[in-house]
């Protein structure tokens, strides 16, 4: 507890993230009303007039939509970041292990992939296979590959310079074994920090894709699409635009703060610079 009190960012970020995860999981078993239930009599009702946070243009309960949206947003973000992490860490650590042309190829590919933000890839994929969760996961996941490849490579290169790796090499261990036994365990902390920050970016990206209509398909609730739908009723029912945006911002803030806090704990030298 004392350690947590020394890192208020970690504590606050952790709490927000925990609250978000709890909300997402709770939405699987309970929401104040069924999120997709249409009740036209409650149409555009402001907060407290119909449920805690009001109702949308179909009279659906906004609190329930936000809760269910948390699950959709987080699950897409988690899967996409995990995929990006798996691909990126594999490429980055192998580039550091093999160096030479393998490293050059991986870094060039990273440069190329980095030129395709998730929205750009999602539009290409959506034109082919249509919008949907798969499109969002592939687009966000692909953009995460070069991010993890770069981080993993530069961290792994530092580990390769250490004495214990030299000892392992002298003992005849191959590049792959050293990567799995020595490099990966030593860069795991850094990768977890990066993953937390990437989760924040992935939540933002998912919201953007759903806003454009290439993410979670209707009638499944999604924060981004709630924002997109709110545009028509902006002056009539501003809460439709304000609440989902707040949910996205809070979720991103939580993961970012958690990532920053974890980084402070793992590498206190960075604290002053950040």
């Amino acid at each position: 507890m004392k350690a947590l009190a020394r890192h208020p960012t970690l504590l606050l970020g952790g709490l927000v993230t925990l609250l978000l995860l709890a909300t997402a999981f709770l939405s699987r078993v309970w929401t104040p009303a069924p999120p997709t239930q249409i009740q036209i009599t409650r149409r555009l009702a402001p907060p407290l007039e119909a449920g805690l946070l009001g109702a949308d243009h179909f009279g659906r309960d906004i609190a329930s939509l936000l809760m269910a949206g948390a699950w959709n947003s987080l699950s897409i973000a988690f899967v996409a970041v995990l995929l990006g992490m798996a691909g990126g860490v594999l490429l980055g650590t192998l580039a550091a292990a093999w160096r030479g042309w393998a490293e050059e190829i991986v870094m060039r590919l990273a440069d190329v992939t980095f030129a395709f933000p998730a929205v750009l890839s999602a539009i290409m994929i959506a034109a082919l296979i249509g919008p949907g969760v798969t499109t969002a996961v592939i687009a966000i996941g692909v953009f995460n590959v070069p991010v993890f490849a770069r981080v993993a490579r530069s961290a792994a290169l530092q580990i390769w310079e250490r004495d214990f790796v030299l000892a392992a090499r002298s003992a005849g261990k191959g590049a792959l074994l050293i990567t799995f036994h020595h490099v990966l365990p030593n860069i795991a902390g850094l990768l977890i920090v990066q993953a937390t920050i990437q989760l924040a970016m992935a939540i933002l990206a998912e919201a953007g894709l759903s806003f454009l209509g290439v993410g979670v398909p209707p009638p499944h609730p999604s924060w981004g699409r709630m924002l997109s739908d709110s545009q028509t009723y902006l002056s009539q029912a501003p809460h439709l635009a304000i609440l989902p945006g707040l949910a996205i911002a809070l979720a991103v803030l939580g993961f970012n703060m958690l990532g920053d806090g974890l980084r402070d704990v793992i590498d206190p030298k960075l604290r002053r610079k950040r």
Partner: peptide, 11 residues
């Protein structure tokens, strides 16, 4: 950093 630019645009 946490505020989506499209939401900020709406605001």
């Amino acid at each position: 950093v946490a505020i989506p630019n499209f939401w900020f645009g709406l605001l």
